[in-house]
Design a protein around this nucleic acid. Structure first.
Lengths: 288, 288
DNA sequence: CATAATCTCTGACTTAGATCAGATATCTCT
DNA sequence: AGAGATATCTGATCTAAGTCAGAGATTATG
């Protein structure tokens, strides 16, 4: 059939690849070949270590070396031996390089903005992009420990609260719930984890030291169904073992049946209410 | 806020471009350089005319010529002068070329299928892909005249009926409506138009000769808001002028307010009911 | 019918990107 | 201190891709 799903995916691929020049910042016409532009961009993004850039961009050491020499000759980059290991070199942008990098960023931003401006439903487009990005790249999702007051962490928490607001019959107001108490989710007392795909936040979970409570488990709608919440929970349990916490607890709500089911299936046992928070109605614990 | 959205788009671009090798059939490792694979694929897709392939792939004439010679030497392609103009040449696949083309197709299909199989919500993924493809490529949407019984036309009509079924309070049953009468929407009596993006059907509209009725105006959800319905209507009016139809009519329903609004804004005037079809409740005409 | 335009082809050339072998300097481990 | 591993660099070489000028055949046009 002409219109079956596989054909649809293939047509998408064709459209996207034919627009790749427009997608990828590296072609944004500043008279520099792709390879050099990518290296400049990688350095600008904070990847100083030459070996790291090489691994990230998948370049041969010879080619990498030549690209760096080229950027050096243009006066955009300078390289120094690494402080701790003089075999390795770290590259950094000169002032001119910084300007050039900013120019690429500005162009890319402008282009993304133009695409959004042209679109009748920007939020729907973004949501669709997230779905596609996750489908393409879910194998590259990484977990990362951050401070719960970090900007990305706060974005995740905001999404989490918004979701609770939509799903609890009476809505959700953070201030009525037990105080987030960010400092309790920071080493050495606790942990806060993010799930990221190329920097796109797709999930989070926190572990509050002291009480040994798991809090704020959230997975972005676009990333659901890939086992990410299970992965986050496994990571938080590992972290708890590392912190020598013998037993974890958590509260949840029967309005979130996927969550309740996840806990039941992964070794948690239901226990009586252990706090007076107005929102949860279901309570679990797990011995480690 | 807007900044956040821009950053999201840019992250999407990064993810997609880093997966481009996996998206694009041309890298599906059959030991042939990209250029040659693209030409082979274009011919397999039915683009015989050398100049047409050249324009489609954006190739220099010299490069194109050499790629064709290469494929000829591999025994995959043969070229003949065009029947009507011996300056031009048409390329076609040999049997070996046909096999090679099929091999690419099979690989690409398998890859697309694998991506779908890995996904927890394939239909949601497809819908998201359509949204992204339209956002990237809406400038490349083309209108094409087809027979209303063509497979793609029928897909569009099916979607159209399904949408009516969702939006009419009592649902929609084609058989109760006036018979589609496909033959009335074929030259020289009438016309049927599709809107396509890289072959992805995004809309349709029909003109029934004789009565001069415009029928079956539909635009895919992913393509709404880009002025496509206006474009389809303009094309159908142009076609009507070409067929020397002096006055067009159409029926619609107040449950489809965007449609009613479109007609009002583009020179149509409401008229009394002119048929006994059970579904429409609003009627328009337009003198050309 | 002569001239201009069109299409393809060929040869010469350039650039970007990739690969490989080995040189050099430095680090790790015993 | 010495052997082996590691990181980078250089030179040589290759392929893919793109560019340009012009030749040759054919068609369109005045």
């Amino acid at each position: 059939m002409t219109n079956d799903l596989i054909a649809r995916v293939r047509r998408f691929n064709r459209t996207v690849t034919s627009e790749v020049g427009a997608l990828d910042m590296s072609f944004l016409g500043r008279g520099r070949p792709l390879g050099a532009a990518r290296v400049l961009n990688a350095i600008g993004h904070g990847r100083g270590d030459v070996a790291e850039i090489r691994a990230y961009l998948g370049l041969d050491s010879g080619l990498m070396s030549r690209l760096l020499r080229g950027l050096e000759q243009e006066g955009l980059v300078e390289t120094l031996p690494a402080a701790d290991d003089a075999r390795r070199r770290v590259a950094r942008l000169t002032e001119a390089g910084e300007r050039e990098y900013r120019a690429y960023e500005t162009l890319s931003d402008a282009q993304a903005a133009a695409m959004l401006a042209r679109h009748p439903h920007p939020e729907a487009l973004i949501a669709a992009m997230d779905v596609v990005a996750v489908a393409l790249g879910h194998a590259r999702i990484v977990l990362e420990e951050v401070h719960p007051r970090d900007a990305v962490a706060r974005y995740c928490l905001g999404e989490y609260y918004a979701e609770l607001g939509r799903r609890f019959p009476g809505g959700f107001d953070v201030s009525l719930s037990r105080d987030p108490d960010a400092e309790e989710m920071v080493r050495p007392r606790g942990v806060f984890l993010l799930a990221l795909l190329d920097g796109l936040p797709l999930g989070c979970v926190g572990l509050k030291g002291g009480t040994g409570e798991v809090k704020r488990l959230w997975v972005a709608p676009a990333a659901r169904g890939f086992g990410l919440s299970k992965r986050l929970m496994r990571a938080i349990e590992d972290a708890a073992r590392g912190l020598a916490i013998p037993c974890l607890r958590l509260d949840t709500n029967s309005a979130l049946p996927e969550a309740v089911q996840l806990y039941r299936r992964t070794g948690w046992t239901e226990i009586p209410r252990f706090n007076d928070d107005p929102y949860p109605d279901t309570f679990f614990e797990k011995r480690l």
